[in-house]
């Protein structure tokens, strides 16, 4: 037998042995199907992974301590996937945007809104423009008509502040998506990317979440000489916590209410509370209910994002 053949025989034996050991050990290993006992939380992907991991790592630990149940954070990188994961029961409690929260509730009968941030009751989007576009700040909404024929980008296709509400206000003032240059808007994928592509000049105008805009300005990531705000939308409701039905049966009577209280009780007085609220960009969580999002549902239906 040549050296090469011997090697091949040895390698085959090793592979077979390894596979056998792995499959035997996997049969004996505990499966992660203790779903009944673990509270799975998730969030729509609107921040960087470092921040998301830090934020939800701390929040999971905090909720676990307060509620005395194991809490697991499941990262999701796509808005629609977050909605589907909620509907199929892969996650129990999710931090949704306005539109995705309504989509998720409509697909999951019995799901309810638990809380929102203090800033979410009156959230706004901003339209930003590249200096070379020649667009100056608008003094009234009907000036949105000046966006006709411009290269405009939204953020993610399911974003409330980066697409739905800006598109709604444009429509209210007679600007349809097909009136834009190129026959339609671009979708940068995120609020941060919207700033980058407008600042660079690839797009003349962009629409995004005002909170993210302010954050970028404060961090010095915006060049005021190249890009500036031209219009701020009227306020609307946005992000919120939505919980699946049936948690009381799984975790005990009154669990959903306890969960709501745990979120509302987060305060900047404790170290963990301060970290969580700072990462959420809020001072506190406030109660919210399903009816608060009727307007988002109406707009969603009008623009075809809710069927």
């Amino acid at each position: 037998m040549s050296v090469r053949e011997r090697r091949a025989v040895v390698a085959t034996g090793l592979i077979a042995g390894l596979a056998l050991t792995a499959s035997v050990s996997s049969c004996g290993a505990p499966q992660n199907d203790a779903k009944q006992a673990v509270l799975q939380i998730g969030a729509i992907p609107d921040q960087n992974p470092e921040k998301l991991n830090r934020l939800y790592g701390t929040l999971s630990a905090e909720l676990s301590e307060k509620l005395d149940v194991p809490v697991r954070y499941a990262p999701v990188s796509n808005y629609a996937a977050a909605v589907s994961a909620f509907r199929t029961g892969s996650v129990d409690l999710v931090w949704f945007g306005g539109l995705t929260g309504v989509q998720a509730r409509l697909q999951t009968p019995g799901a309810r809104v638990l809380a929102q941030r203090d800033i979410d009751a009156e959230f706004t989007s901003v339209f930003i423009a590249n200096g070379a576009s020649g667009l100056r700040p608008f003094t009234s909404a009907n000036q949105l008509v000046e966006l006709k024929g411009r290269r405009l980008t939204f953020g993610s296709e399911s974003s409330t502040s980066g697409r739905l509400m800006p598109q709604f206000f444009m429509g209210e003032n007679g600007v349809k998506p097909e009136d834009l240059a190129g026959g339609g808007p671009g979708f940068s994928g995120s609020h941060d990317a919207t700033i980058a592509v407008v600042q660079s000049g690839a797009f003349e105008v962009g629409a995004l979440n005002e909170q993210v805009w302010r954050g970028n300005v404060a961090d010095g990531r915006v060049d005021p000489g190249k890009v500036s705000v031209i219009w701020r939308t009227p306020p609307y409701v946005d992000y919120h916590w939505v919980v699946r039905p049936g948690l009381d049966e799984r975790f005990g009577e009154g669990f959903t209410n306890k969960l709501q209280s745990a979120l509302l009780d987060l305060s900047a007085d404790t170290d963990d509370g301060a970290t969580i609220l700072e990462l959420f960009g809020a001072e506190r969580f406030i109660p919210a209910k399903n009816e608060d999002y009727v307007m988002i549902e109406t707009v969603g239906r009008q623009l075809g994002k809710i069927r």
């Binding site: 992974p49 796509n78 996937a81 977050a82 941060d192 980058a196």
Partner: peptide, 21 residues
């Protein structure tokens, strides 16, 4: 698949890309 929400390294890469980190 990770980029589109099914977990793994793609999820992290896509989140970093979107936040320009």
């Amino acid at each position: 698949l990770g980029v589109f929400g099914l977990g793994g390294l793609g999820t992290d890469l896509s989140l970093s890309l979107r936040s320009l980190q």
